[in-house]
Amino acid sequence: MIKDITIGQYFNGKSVLHRLDARMKIILTVVFIVSIFLCQNFWSLGLMVLFTLMTVIVSGVPFKMVLRSIKPIAIIVTFTSLINIFYVRGGTSLVDWRFIHITTNGVFTALFMATRIVCLVVISSMLTYTTTPTMLTDAIEKLLSPLKIFKIPVSTLAMMMTLALRFIPTLVDEIDRITNAQKARGANLDDGNFVQRIKALVPIIVPLFVSSIRRAVELADAMDCRCYTGGPGRTRMKQMKFHLRDFASLFVILVLIAGIVVLNYYFGAVLVK
């Protein structure tokens, strides 16, 4: 049933990655994405792939699920790879037949690009696989809290984000119910041209709006009753605390960067200028 949808793609688990502080995970992800672009040869690239694989294994998220997150980008990766292969010049010529010219630089660039994109997507999805949307929201709120000095209402924005996450399943459920009710009155939602289809949505969108407004009014009352003011003085039950493992993880990623730099230095760049 539609009720069972999960927001984001959290995979329930107990691995070290799950237990890492969400703020640290966001920082680590950013650092990793930067380090992806540091790689200059196959050795450092290999190290990065190895690290990505290790992360997946440690997280305990099944490979099948990880592959699913790559699927949507497969076409983009293939397409950019092909363009790189046929258009990038430089290095040794591999094929030179009529209008087709393929060089080592082209093949290498394609390989690099593909690997980088895949690693980037896999690591980012590891963040969402191991962190609940709630933890992510809290972490973003904390990381952005310095912006408060510029009068940006960070906690209000975070509250809005939480409420959005909370009500998405409720609204999805509601859309499902309204759609069925209108179908039972003979609404035809599946056939017709573009304009007809848009028109057919009116009987669903109007009730959805009406009920959302009603929900919003009731929710506002409920929040008032529980003394929400949106102002300062609010405390949080769940305090975020960095543990030893968080610092250890930071150390691991620094070692990775050091490794990439060293390998880059020893084996030189693979692309020929």
């Binding site: 009155r185 009730p207 009406v210």
Partner: peptide, 20 residues
């Protein structure tokens, strides 16, 4: 299937939320 839609009228729970 389409005929069944009209031969069997189904009114869901809280039907007032279908008014538009």
């Amino acid at each position: 299937t389409r005929e069944a839609r009209f031969k069997v009228g189904l009114c869901f729970q809280y039907p007032e939320y279908q008014l538009f």
